[in-house]
Design a protein around this nucleic acid. Structure first.
Lengths: 206, 206
DNA sequence: CCATTTATGTAATGATCACTACACAATTAA
DNA sequence: TTAATTGTGTAGTGATCATTACATAAATGG
């Protein structure tokens, strides 16, 4: 069942890769449609025909980013027996992902548009939603850990989730500012030292 | 010794306050000179006469920001006898500063322009320099702590500084995404639990 | 073949960007 | 008073922004 009309002269994933590189490096606002047109090797009408608008393109880029670079951090966390191991994996995998030599440093979702208000509220809110899901995912992980008896029911899993999410997002800024992979792995290990104290609630309040 | 010419009809610090509010909330790129002109109640020529350019204005705004909001975190750290107390103060003061109801949440220096490349490289590099000084300040604090015998000479103070800087910068993202003051203070307390393990080097590698 | 459909490239659209020319107002120095 | 100096407001500057009109190219369906 062939499609009608003139076929596309480009590969959609390749084009998204090019757009991803620009948004990742420069952020949403500093990337113009002219820049994108040059990098994607697509004329503006082709971009608009395929993606709709700059914001819609950005949404597709984020989905592409999560699929390509997010899974190695978040996929199959249940293969770890203990939530502590899963947490360490998240932090170490983030340290590795944020310091690849062939890619911009740090996380696109954290760095592309952290404004509180802007002329592109949709972009800000979309990214905020993804960032919040980090804390939510960790909290779910710890709730499951409580059910399985790996974490005391008295532990404050909200604080735990917020704490490790803070370390992970902070690593994005550090990576962008030049922290090396080994430095970030050391940060991950330092953060994991807190685990025994964190799960024994007495030391943490709401 | 009075100055010649027509006197200014506005207060410079008031104008910087208004500009600070916009840059803080919207970031560098999402704040236009037209927005600034409206908020500062200054016509564009007055802004340019007083500050030179948008980038120069931003530099003055950062200096204003550091003077107003940075000192309560970083000033007089030597009043704390122990570097552990100073570190806890930095984190808790940050948690408080980043969640004020009357101001944008999170740190301007972290959130205003975290791009790796942009059309305003000067702005990015200036902010990056300020962010790096966080790690440097902490490292100096810990080096002094080693001299005074509060931290073992075998401790890896580079890792310690990077770790606590990561937590502090991560708190900016969390605050912007809606974390409450108490949540961030809990994060600060969680991060401080790592101290005993952190200063006993055996657990941390370079 | 012709009609339809979809993609492409050129060249433009009005809006907004940072910035400024210019005329005028308000002050001090002499 | 007059000249010099500095600040102000209006109304622009060219450049760039995201987006699109339009003519043409390349495919399928009949």
């Amino acid at each position: 069942m062939a499609t009608r009309g003139r076929p596309r002269a480009y590969d959609r994933d390749d084009a998204l890769d090019k757009a991803l590189g620009l948004f990742w490096e420069r952020g949403y606002d500093n990337t113009s449609m002219a820049d994108l047109s040059t990098a994607m090797k697509l004329s503006p009408p082709s971009i608009y025909a395929a993606f709709g608008s700059k914001e819609a393109l950005f949404d597709d880029v984020i989905a592409h980013y999560n699929k390509l670079h997010g899974t190695m951090i978040w996929a199959d966390l249940d293969r770890f027996k203990h939530p502590k191991d899963a947490t360490k994996h998240v932090l170490v995998a983030s340290a590795n992902a944020y310091t690849r030599e062939d890619l911009p440093h740090g996380c696109l979702v954290v760095l592309a548009a952290p404004q509180e208000n802007s002329t592109h509220a949709t972009v800000n809110q979309t990214l905020r939603g993804y960032r919040r899901s980090v804390t939510k995912n960790l909290r779910n992980l710890y709730a499951e850990g409580q059910r399985r008896g790996h974490i005391p029911s008295t532990a404050n899993i909200d604080t735990m989730a917020t704490y490790y999410a803070t370390v992970q997002t902070g690593m994005s800024i550090q990576a962008r500012d030049g922290a090396t992979r080994n430095e970030l792995i050391s940060v991950a290990e330092a953060a994991m030292m807190t685990w025994p104290s964190l799960i024994s609630t007495s030391l943490v309040k709401g």
